[in-house]
């Protein structure tokens, strides 16, 4: 029981008349990396925003380490780290000032902040950029600051929304190995529409299409469920286009 870090049941959300997410239930265990896959507009970002508490669900429940996110948001959110699609960076602050602010916001005790900052910068490859203004950093470094912000308070669950978008191949590789490393300690949920990324970092995959989960399981289960498809790409196309024909 204790090693289930995220559990959602019958999560739904609509914008006006349009349903963005419909009836999503899943569980995530400690140390797992879950890849949320889907074409554009499938509802990945909406799902992640609901998990992070930035968006109130229309219906359903979310529990983070057994704490209800809607009833006890303060305690649940303290266990979460979130990197949205656009990293929420204040360009006028330096990396150190920004991370210190993020740590304070997440209630890291004052005495522990210098150590937390040092550790996080080390992990994210930001050791030499502490004094630089965020606005003057390259896109790849800004993305790293975004990830650093999400893990500075040692959360149990890390939620990353398209963490490798707009990076060069070397940066993508570095970020992926960072995600794998994070997966060893925390639970990680990441959304992407880059299939090789999922194959290289995720333990489990969930495929979403038009607001609904069309597949959920690990790679072995995926092979078992769809023996006629040779690769993840084919399964993905099969699952998301099948819906279209139906």
């Amino acid at each position: 029981m204790t090693n289930i870090t995220v559990s959602t049941s019958e999560l739904s959300r609509s914008y006006g008349a349009r349903t963005a997410v419909h009836d999503i239930s899943f569980e995530l265990r400690q140390g797992e990396v879950l890849g949320l896959l889907g074409p554009n507009g499938a509802g990945k970002t909406t799902t992640l925003q609901m998990l992070a508490g930035c968006l109130a669900p229309g219906a359903g429940r979310i529990e983070i380490c057994g704490i209800d996110l809607l009833e006890r948001p303060r305690e649940a959110k303290a266990l979460l780290g979130f990197l949205p699609e656009t990293p929420p960076l204040y360009r006028d602050l330096t990396v150190d000032e920004y991370l210190r602010f993020a740590a304070r916001l997440h209630r890291v005790p004052k005495a522990d902040i210098p150590a937390a900052l040092e550790r996080t910068k080390q992990r994210c490859g930001l050791a030499d950029t502490g004094k630089r203004l965020i606005g003057s950093l390259s896109k790849g470094f800004q993305q790293r600051v975004g990830i650093a912000q999400a893990i500075v308070h040692n959360p149990r669950v890390v939620i990353l929304d398209e963490p490798t978008v707009g990076l060069d191949p070397i940066q993508i590789r570095e970020i992926r190995s960072l995600i794998r490393e994070l997966g060893g300690k925390y639970s990680v949920i990441l959304s992407t529409h880059i299939l090789p990324e999922v194959e290289s970092v995720c333990d489990r995959i969930q495929i979403m299409d038009r607001g609904q989960l069309v597949f959920s399981g690990d790679f072995a289960e995926l092979k078992q469920a769809h023996p006629e498809q040779a690769s993840l790409e084919e399964v993905f196309i099969h699952l998301t286009q099948q819906e279209e024909q139906a």
Binding site: A52, P84, E85, L89, Y90, R91, L105, Q149
Partner: peptide, 14 residues
């Protein structure tokens, strides 16, 4: 505008 609100909203603050 800069979409930085998510940092505050996802943090444990009301």
């Amino acid at each position: 505008r800069n979409q930085t609100m998510a940092l505050l909203l996802s943090a444990p603050v009301s």
